[in-house]
Nucleic acid binder design. Structure first.
Lengths: 333, 333
DNA sequence: CTGAAAGCGCTTACAG
DNA sequence: CTGAAAGCGCTTACAG
């Protein structure tokens, strides 16, 4: 795999590497004669020249690389974010490095280090718990970083998120208005602030409404079993008009899987509302009422802010908050 | 974002950059005294040194970067592949660049060029139609490339795939053994060889069995509508014992969505068998009988072969063919 | 045990 | 209109 370089072009065309560099980068501005210009382009073409962006990056300190760290690229929700970010990044001429953290702070840190050694111009990350230290180190170095989906307390990094607490309250108010006798929140047992916000929204509304409620909180992994056991236990008590509120797509899929398996009809036997979209909902017997995050707009904004930071770094902890939307279908009655 | 370099360490520690490089890379082999070694490590730590992999790559011509090109990273099937490749690549110390081709040869070419300019050590790609030229160019340059999931005719690149034709025949034989009066294949109208293989398997078995069959072939995009119209048309004719054979997860999701919407019961009204796994199946009323590809093993093998090619390039068109497995559930009766 | 020097493939002020 | 030269941050044979 012998690479051809600007030097080869220069030699063959009988000019200096400087001249070659100027015409290849279209920075001649009338400096170079048409003749040499054509010659150089022709040689580049025939010897099949591919520019070495590493060398360029080394010289210019700009890599046109962006690092993206999400919890798990094989999760619907994150792969949709990744895809939208890919599209936006490509538009601006960036190439994407991707890594999955698996909610593991060690892995998260490892990825940050890997990407920063790789000289990415900036990163878009969904931070995990206990990743404050590594992120603080990054901002101390004025490394452009933007968070997406999640945020961490006391961390001044620009971020893109939704109005978690408010939309959660809205969901609950919506459920309250339907006169349920019991509302069950299925969430994560976690310290991630954006998830706690969803829980807080639930708590607040439930307290003020006085409707009996229950919470099933599961670990971030192996959720299927925990969710199903949780639902089973709660449902065993005497029959009531109940609603299940799933605070993520994965939780919803786990829960709906249980309902299907046990022939529990939605919404006749129980109502369901869920966070996030997923293709899986389309195969469920009942169209699911869910909370839609504007992922495309969020991705676009994340890339835009990151690009701005890359071009002109300004310390900032500004959060851009997108309103999520409750999409009413047929799973709540 | 001022970067600290090996030079800074050398200056502060009062040694040469060569010495610093040796201890940082653990290539001292007794050359360096414990004292200077410690000193260097200490300085590196305190001034927060991050190695510049680009500079290293430039010098060594090894980037430890792998480019991954799939059709669409937001598609379940591909994001699972991506995740598995990520895991394997990380184990071997590679970092992943990712891009989606959207089945578009121009985009595919663009990504290949981008990645090769970025000096990736190798690429794992799911080639699209009409991507022969760009891939041939790559192999002429002895650039390590491995295909996954798909392959192209007359293209000598190592590849990982499943036994598409054989498993498709098996599926059909399985259906034939169930005495269906009509079997309907839902596939893509495409030239992609691995998909044609699935169709050929179907054709062969159907011809020999003599059972009436039908094919619904849809374009690679906007499949939902086409699949649903196709099924609707076929189903209108007088009632028979029918089976639907979906040749991809996306087609299956589109088709099952139609069945759900029209309250067509599986397997009582119609049987269903599908290629690939997807989370969505778990929310369908009936457990879907499907073809499982060993994606984890395939990803591991792809990375392994690529790594071998990177370490010691050998022109090869060898295909590693993994057997797919028919997982019998309850959607065929 | 350690350092000076060349060089990877580029860009870009500077000089002519 | 064009080129010589320095330098980005590294590695590595070579010399001592």
């Amino acid at each position: 795999m012998k690479r051809v370089s600007i030097k080869d072009i220069a030699r063959i065309a009988g000019v200096s590497v400087a001249t070659v560099s100027y015409v290849l980068n279209k920075k001649e501005g009338n400096r170079i004669s048409e003749a040499t210009k054509e010659k150089i382009l022709e040689v580049a073409e025939t010897i099949n020249y591919t520019p070495n962006k590493m060398a360029k990056s080394l010289k210019t300190s700009k890599s046109r690389l962006i690092g993206l760290i999400l919890a798990d690229i094989s999760n619907d929700f994150y792969s949709t974010i990744a895809r939208n970010i890919e599209n936006e990044a490509m538009k601006l001429g960036y190439t994407l490095l991707i890594g999955s953290s698996d909610e593991n702070p060690e892995k998260f840190k490892k990825l940050i280090e890997l990407f920063s050694e790789q000289q990415v111009d900036g990163m878009i990350v969904a931070p995990v718990v206990h990743s404050e230290t590594i992120l603080e180190k990054l901002i101390k170095e004025e490394y452009p970083v933007v968070t997406i989906d999640r945020y961490l307390n006391n961390l001044d990094i620009p971020g893109i998120m939704i109005n978690n607490r408010e939309i959660s309250e809205q969901i609950c108010e919506f459920l309250v208005s339907k006169n349920f006798e019991e509302i069950i929140y299925i969430g994560y047992d976690t310290e991630l602030p954006h998830l706690l916000d969803r829980e807080k929204g639930f708590d607040k509304c439930m307290t003020s409404s006085g409707i009996p409620c229950e919470k099933i909180l599961v670990g971030l992994e192996n959720i299927t079993l925990e969710v199903q056991n949780g639902i089973e236990k709660v449902i065993k008590t005497r029959s009531r008009k109940r609603a299940l509120y799933f605070s993520s797509n994965k939780l919803a899929v786990a829960g709906l899987g249980y309902l299907i398996k046990h022939s529990i009809n939605v919404p006749n036997d129980i109502s369901v509302i869920a966070f996030d979209e997923t293709e899986a909902y389309t195969l469920f017997q009942t169209e699911i009422t869910y909370v839609k995050q504007p992922l495309e707009e969020m991705a676009a904004e994340a890339v835009k802010i990151l690009d701005n930071q890359i071009n002109n770094y300004i310390p900032s902890g500004k959060k851009v908050i997108f309103p999520a939307k409750l999409i009413e279908k047929k799973s709540v009655q």
